[in-house]
Design a protein around this nucleic acid. Structure first.
Lengths: 335, 335
DNA sequence: ATTGCAATTGTTACCGGTAACTTCGGATCA
DNA sequence: TGATCCGAAGTTACCGGTAACAATTGCAAT
């Protein structure tokens, strides 16, 4: 006698309808070549007559495989991650993996919570934004013995697979571009100030110091970045350092916001003030003038992650590896 | 003898370590008040000594409850959905539900695939963007007897819970705002042209026709919208209809792109051309001039969904209901 | 006719939890 | 002092699949 009247159609129901045992139905679904063609057809028609929906939990429990992979992203409104996601999804879904997306909101505590949750779900791999994690998260990951990808930035000590680009180097290169163009009083504007933003800023500092220039013209905030914020912060910077010649913004949103503020003030860009952003999002090509930016190979990052992860899932040895996919400087017209 | 050497720590291991049976450990986790305080402490310390991670599949299978809800969103790079998500997540996670995010890419076929996938995962509810679904998706949803939320737009025939705003009405209202300001030759610019974009456009048509004005100045494309596209399409429209006085863009991205193109052409906005977008994203307040837009109550949509869904999950009768959360016109300075 | 083998289908046990019911010792109470 | 009740822990069966191995059948090979 059933404990619950779940009403749900199970393999057993299909099996009875067709007059076989459930293992045969299970086979017809997972290894059709092992079931005779005639029977397979009868099973298939019974399945859609009755509306059978496989129970993933039961399958995962019995087989010890979940066929799913967790992808944690910091923000649901940033095309940086959506393009990476597309590359990953494409590669993994083809290989039969379901990609479960989680949203950390740039918080490593939330990341920790999600890692825990998804390990309970039995994901076969985790893809994490960044290389900064809580201690507890590291412990969970180590114990779980599951492939882990850390992405976006590079790290000297990857947990496992690391695919990204050198954010510090990129920040330095963009700053150097300002300097090459003859700008000297170059400031830095940053928001959110997650670890990657800090690396970019450090790159700016390094380049400035190397050139013997001041790094005082720097304004940052922990608030999430936005177009509005870019404008407001630019205003503050101009007030504080009226002699600014150029500003390297930690991302494209801030740079665009800063550009709008310049337009509002009828300041010529780059004549009176040069601007640059980071990431190479669509907007940098649309503004007038187009924004200088660091173009990051997001799509390729996603694809590379998929490739490397599949290799690991298919048994490649767990050798920590760091892959640097580089970046490109685009001067746009704002620098 | 174990079939697999999973290596994973289970309830049984904890139980043996502590010297009780697994059901007691299970209780200590789910209903701590039923276990004596002393024992509970010993269990807890065994759990983190051994690094126990509950197996969600096993729990879900045994209890028939997954404590998870699927949220499908069309785009991972659009703050429209990220704000809705935040509202939903907040309400549901507090009540112990895990929100699983899926990405449809605006495709109802992909939506169908995801509905199927998440029903296999045993989600206890589904939140879908829009009211358009494939026939098969409808069949799946009906058979699954699971609460369903359709959001963003309103529908006369909700599957279950429907929370959103009248996109047609909003399109009409924005167009009427153009007319109220004396603009007559008002065009429409749309991309992607998913169902909501079509509704907005229909609203534009209705308002124009009602005013006895021409609806010929209309350019749409199935391509995804972007800032660049907004600029390019504006250029096409100006070439084709040089007498345009205003353009209602199907979303804020297009409107911003169009504005940038006007700036490039040194066209005065709104003097020579008035512009408006849709959604009220951050960028509309940052540009110069700020963009006119239809402000949609995204956060409230998310919160309302959470509230209504929780009520249903806690046993409220499955009465189809449609809740209209309205919108606001903001004239910015571009209209 | 016997053997061998491949193609099909079935049997059995088990994955790791939880529901429902049972047991047991002690406190409460008439 | 026996009946009753309550808190705390245990027993048993089962959720819905899948792994591993066994059984059956038909046919080719010996």
């Amino acid at each position: 006698m059933p404990r619950r009247s779940s009403g749900r159609v199970t393999l057993q129901h299909i099996a009875e309808r067709v007059g076989v045992t459930k293992i045969t139905v299970s086979r017809a679904l997972r290894e059709p070549h092992l079931v005779s063609a005639a029977l397979r057809l009868r099973i298939e028609s019974a399945i859609d007559e009755l509306g059978y929906i496989p129970n993933h939990s039961a399958g995962a429990l019995a087989s010890g495989r979940s066929h799913s992979v967790a992808l944690l992203i910091p923000s649901l409104s940033n095309s940086v991650f959506s393009e990476i996601q597309r590359g990953i999804e494409e590669g993994l879904s083809e290989a039969g993996y379901q990609v479960l997306i989680g949203h950390t909101g740039y918080s490593i505590l939330e990341e920790e919570r999600l890692i825990d949750t998804y390990l309970r779900y039995g994901v076969e791999a985790l893809i994490l934004p960044g290389s900064r994690h809580t201690d507890h998260a590291r412990r969970l990951l180590t114990r779980a013995r599951v492939p882990v990808v850390e992405t976006l930035e590079l790290t000297e000590t990857p947990l496992d697979i690391n695919v990204g680009l050198d954010q510090h180097e990129a920040g330095k290169a963009m700053t150097q571009t300002f300097l090459d163009q003859g700008y000297r009083r170059v400031g830095f504007l940053g928001a959110r100030m997650d670890y990657r933003a800090q690396l970019r800023m450090a790159g700016w500092e390094a380049a400035m110091q190397q050139a013997g220039l001041s790094t005082e013209r720097c304004l940052t905030t922990p608030h999430p970045s936005s177009y509005r914020l870019g404008g407001e912060m630019l205003a503050s910077m101009l007030e504080r350092w009226p002699d600014l010649e150029g500003i390297f913004c930690g991302n494209d949103d801030l740079a665009a916001g800063a550009l709008f503020e310049c337009q509002r003030r009828r300041m010529n860009v780059p004549g009176q003030l040069a601007l640059a952003g980071f990431n190479g999002l669509d907007i940098t090509e649309a503004t007038s003038p187009p924004l200088a930016t660091v173009v990051t190979p997001r799509r390729r990052i996603g694809e590379t992650i998929a490739t490397r992860l599949l290799a690991r899932l298919q048994g490649a040895p767990p050798t920590p590896i760091s892959e640097n996919l580089g970046f490109q400087i685009r001067r746009g017209g704002s620098l």
